[in-house]
């Protein structure tokens, strides 16, 4: 604290006299400080402005690339609204909720397809998780037997992860024939790629201090793994696998678009053939199912691994 405080100085132009513990600096000194502040802020601001301008320019180019046409949007936006109006109207002209039996006339078939969808994602997720589990130790830095193995496994996982599941499904439908098997395999491969990377990251991030702690009590290597590493990674593995299951249910719901089984087949037919009320009915069953799966896996994760691992 270099300078002593000056006497109280009442500032003008403000309300009633008040205790002011700040003495305004002389104008010249203020100007210097103000100048220095403005200068360094201006540098940051101009950088930010430049970045914003560049981003906007890219956006404009993208708008041309994607043939964005605001006029189309405005002209057809009514269609979007009326589309929802139509899918919420029965053939008889009544609102769908006035006659749930008519609205969900196909519930028996749809529930069966929905069950198939969930099974597809379940079998696909489990297969993918097992494959990822067996591959992740080769991909993790601290456990991989060699750099070449690691490199190859990593590239394989990357490939499986980057190519969208539905592209695999398109190809598998040709190789394995139409049906849910192609969907399961597509999901399994995509899941292997996604989970393999996450699992490997968990192994790499495992805290080695507990291992040291257990070892210091005189435990064997196996005990170290069982009691120091496994508790750390197993929760993460299961948590990611459950999360993936959730995602896969969504993914499996569209596998039917390319003939790879599940509820998607029904949906795409309903949309393409303009069976409006069917569209809303199927969408609602899908949304409700995804909700239930979300909530129950969330509950399961919380139950199994405590609150802290939830998301």
């Amino acid at each position: 604290m270099a300078r002593p405080f000056l006497s109280t100085q009442l500032r003008t132009g403000l309300q009633a006299p008040m205790a002011t513990a700040v003495s305004i600096l002389p104008a010249q000194q203020l100007a210097t400080l103000e100048g220095a502040y403005r200068k360094s802020v201006a540098r940051k601001r101009s950088k930010a402005a430049l970045a914003t301008a560049a981003f906007c320019a890219v956006l404009v180019i993208a708008a041309f690339g994607a043939e964005v046409n605001l006029r189309t949007l405005f002209t057809y936006f009514g269609n979007f609204v009326s589309y929802f109006d139509r899918i919420l109207t029965l053939d008889s002209g009544a609102r769908v909720w006035t006659d749930p039996a008519e609205w969900f006339w196909g519930w028996h078939k749809w529930l069966k397809m929905l069950g198939e969808t969930i099974l597809i994602s379940y079998v696909g997720t489990l297969t993918g998780a097992v494959l990822a589990f067996s591959l992740n130790f080769f991909a993790a830095q601290n456990t991989s037997p060699g750099p070449w193995v690691r490199f190859t496994v990593r590239r394989l996982l990357e490939f499986a992860r980057t190519v969208p599941g539905i592209v695999f499904a398109l190809i598998f439908v040709i190789a394995f024939g139409l049906g849910p098997m192609a969907g399961v395999l597509a999901i399994a491969i995509h899941t292997t790629g996604a989970l393999g990377k996450l699992f490997a990251e968990i192994v790499e991030n495992a805290d080695m201090k507990p291992v040291e702690g257990i070892r210091s009590t005189g435990a064997s290597w196996l005990s170290c793994m069982r009691f120091a590493v496994l508790p750390q990674v197993s929760a993460g593995y299961a948590s990611y696998a459950l999360l993936r299951f959730e995602i896969n249910v969504r993914e499996a719901s569209v596998m039917g678009f390319v003939g790879a089984g599940g509820i998607g087949q029904e949906l795409v037919v309903a949309i393409r053939k303009f069976y409006y009320s069917d569209v809303s009915a199927i969408l609602i069953t899908i949304i409700v199912t995804v909700f239930i799966i979300d909530i129950s896996t969330g509950w399961l994760r919380g139950r199994l691994f405590g609150k802290e691992t939830r998301r």
């Binding site: 604290m1 300078r3 305004i24 600096l25 400080l33 220095a36 502040y37 802020v41």
Partner: peptide, 21 residues
């Protein structure tokens, strides 16, 4: 303007006006 002056002066009282930015 007077608020900026007040803030800068307050910082100066604690010898940290040069850190304003």
């Amino acid at each position: 303007e007077q608020d900026r002056a007040l803030a800068l002066s307050a910082l100066d009282q604690f010898d940290i006006a040069q850190l304003a930015a």
